[in-house]
């Protein structure tokens, strides 16, 4: 049986928790189908078989936090036909971008006995700050359905439909009564990028923004709503400064409340 040449897939990791690439292994129902359609050419977490590039599709997890990684991402870009950044680290710098608000050596001193050995950059930055990125999948972590959707779209030449509207649309479709309106629970849903399926409100908690800012986030208006619900300035700083602290609209809004 002549085997047609399958497109190659590579997965690379930068500073991250591994969760986004693990999402691929969590696609239990689709994993073997994926393996049948693509050649997994570089996916260390899954296989010790490593093929050299160029790769047809490269998924990049994690943010750039070291000088070495800032070099490595360029190498990866060079051998990747299509490069997709997956997850909050790769698209916004991730939780480790919390360092961006302060002096990284202060953080290092808290954690490490010998901080002089730490080789790290002052800021944690998304992949797109370093190389051209063909597509971004948001989320901390990405939703595995979107990952499978991405592969399906890519294999078939379809434009991947990822709504950049608010979480509220998903929440309302799901039929969850708004936690902010019905319970007074502060929620970042109205300024947060859809994609999670409005998970947190379905568990009666406010969205904490793990998919980052939506397409036209009115963070100032939402901050005013939060304030009316009793949130303080520090609450707002912390709310906008979590897993997408490095995303510009969230960073700006957090700074507004830091100054007050």
């Amino acid at each position: 049986m002549g085997e047609r040449k399958k497109p190659t897939l590579a997965v690379f990791k930068f500073a991250s928790c591994d969760g986004c690439q693990l999402s691929l292994l969590d696609c239990e129902d689709e994993l073997l189908a994926v393996a049948a359609e693509v050649e997994i050419a570089n996916f260390l977490e899954a296989s010790r078989a490593v093929a050299k590039g160029p790769y047809d599709l490269t998924l990049v997890e994690g943010s750039i936090t070291t000088p070495h990684d800032a070099e490595r991402i360029h190498q990866i870009r060079r051998v990747s036909k299509t490069l997709v950044a997956i997850g909050a680290c790769a698209t916004a710098g991730g939780v480790q971008a919390l360092r961006n608000t302060g002096d990284v050596s202060d953080f290092a001193k808290i954690v490490y006995a010998s901080p002089q050995y730490i080789e790290t950059l002052g800021k944690s930055t998304p992949i797109v700050d370093h190389v051209f990125v063909d597509f971004e999948l948001r989320g901390c972590p990405v939703r595995k359905e979107q990952l499978v959707g991405l592969l399906g779209a890519w294999l078939n030449g379809r434009a991947l439909e990822v709504s950049s509207a608010s979480v509220c649309l998903e929440c309302k479709r799901r039929g969850t009564p708004c936690v902010m309106v019905a319970a007074g629970t502060p929620c970042l849903g109205p300024v947060t990028h859809a994609g999670c399926g409005a998970l947190c409100p379905s568990f009666r908690r406010g969205c904490y923004g793990c998919f980052g800012p939506m397409e036209s986030p009115n963070t100032a208006s939402l901050a005013a709503v939060w304030t009316s619900l009793g949130a303080t300035g520090p609450d707002l700083v912390r709310a906008f400064r979590s897993f997408n602290a490095g995303a510009e609209p969230f960073r700006r809004e957090s700074e507004v409340h830091e100054q007050r």
């Binding site: 969760g19 070291t66 808290i110």
Partner: peptide, 30 residues
């Protein structure tokens, strides 16, 4: 793997945030 400074970031956060923040140390065993 580069360092990610979790213990430092935790300072100044609310005690209620620890479960969500520390989960991000590891995607395998959050």
């Amino acid at each position: 793997e580069p360092p990610r400074f979790f213990e430092a970031f935790l300072r100044g956060r609310q005690y209620t945030e620890a479960p969500d923040l520390t989960a991000r140390i590891c995607g395998i065993c959050p």
